[in-house]
Simulated assay, not measured.
Amino acid sequence: MIFEELALPGLFRVVPEPHADERGFFARTQCESEFAERGLVGRFTQSSVSFNHRRGTVRGMHFSKLPHAETKLVRCTGGAIHDAVIDLRPDSPTYLRTASVTLSATNRHALYIPAGLAHGFQTLSDDTEILYMIDRPFVASAADGVRWDDPAFGLAWLEPVTVIAPRDLAFPDWAGR
């Protein structure tokens, strides 16, 4: 695996290195020891799938409050997404900055998202599926979010928004917190 650190500390694109032959290929997509060598969480206790019918669907921007903040490894297993994160760690040199990548079933990249970052995505194709690997059990009372179009962050979405949940629409502006 190749670990490419992105614009926010601790945020990595994880690129598999396929070993190909006439059958196709085989590639490791997660290895606890390889993650640990880089000081990253490598043990994930929960996996979840998000399936989205329509291109343009936005989910986010979600995070879990301390002490239940989650580290995630996100991979698109069907279709494609524009994946976005916001650094909400007050002590971070990139506090309130954003980063984004395209994840797809074709490129097979994953995004390693450390605790303290808000996460969301927009589907770039119909019938898109995303696999989440999460380092701790979900705690509903810790779930929170910021608005997907909050001007404080200036996230640029690639498609017109076709579907978004009422909960995501109702998150307050960051400035109002």
Rank of each mutant, 00 (worst) to 15 (best):
3 F>W: 08
3 F>Y: 10
6 L>T: 07
7 A>T: 04
9 P>E: 15
9 P>W: 13
9 P>A: 14
9 P>S: 12
10 G>F: 13
10 G>I: 11
11 L>V: 14
12 F>Y: 10
13 R>A: 12
14 V>M: 07
14 V>S: 03
15 V>R: 06
15 V>G: 02
19 H>T: 14
20 A>S: 14
22 E>Y: 09
23 R>N: 07
26 F>Y: 01
28 R>E: 11
29 T>R: 04
29 T>D: 03
30 Q>M: 12
32 E>R: 10
34 E>H: 05
37 E>Q: 14
38 R>M: 06
39 G>M: 08
41 V>Q: 04
42 G>L: 01
42 G>A: 01
43 R>I: 04
43 R>C: 06
44 F>W: 09
44 F>T: 09
44 F>S: 02
44 F>A: 03
45 T>R: 02
47 S>W: 00
49 V>D: 13
50 S>F: 04
51 F>C: 05
52 N>C: 10
53 H>N: 14
54 R>K: 12
55 R>I: 13
57 T>F: 00
57 T>D: 02
60 G>T: 06
60 G>E: 11
62 H>W: 11
63 F>P: 14
64 S>N: 13
64 S>T: 14
65 K>P: 11
66 L>C: 04
67 P>L: 00
67 P>W: 01
68 H>N: 11
69 A>S: 07
71 T>Y: 03
72 K>G: 12
72 K>N: 09
72 K>A: 10
73 L>Q: 12
74 V>Y: 09
75 R>H: 15
77 T>Q: 09
79 G>N: 07
79 G>T: 02
79 G>R: 00
81 I>H: 05
83 D>K: 08
84 A>L: 07
85 V>K: 05
85 V>C: 08
87 D>Y: 07
88 L>C: 05
90 P>T: 10
92 S>H: 09
93 P>A: 15
93 P>Y: 10
94 T>V: 13
94 T>H: 15
94 T>R: 14
96 L>Y: 07
97 R>M: 12
100 S>W: 01
101 V>S: 04
101 V>Y: 01
102 T>W: 01
103 L>H: 05
103 L>D: 06
104 S>L: 06
105 A>M: 13
105 A>Y: 10
105 A>E: 15
106 T>V: 15
109 H>N: 08
111 L>V: 03
111 L>G: 06
113 I>C: 04
113 I>D: 03
113 I>A: 01
113 I>K: 03
114 P>V: 00
116 G>H: 02
116 G>V: 02
122 Q>K: 03
122 Q>W: 05
122 Q>M: 04
124 L>A: 09
124 L>M: 11
125 S>K: 06
126 D>W: 10
127 D>W: 12
128 T>P: 13
129 E>R: 06
130 I>P: 01
131 L>I: 12
132 Y>E: 14
136 R>M: 07
137 P>S: 13
139 V>Q: 12
141 S>D: 15
142 A>M: 09
143 A>K: 03
144 D>T: 09
146 V>F: 06
146 V>T: 05
152 A>D: 15
156 A>Q: 08
156 A>E: 11
158 L>V: 04
159 E>Y: 00
160 P>Q: 12
161 V>R: 04
163 V>K: 01
164 I>R: 03
165 A>P: 06
167 R>N: 13
168 D>P: 07
170 A>F: 00
170 A>R: 10
170 A>G: 09
171 F>G: 05
171 F>L: 13
171 F>W: 15
172 P>S: 02
174 W>C: 10
175 A>Y: 05
176 G>K: 15
177 R>S: 13
177 R>E: 12
177 R>A: 12
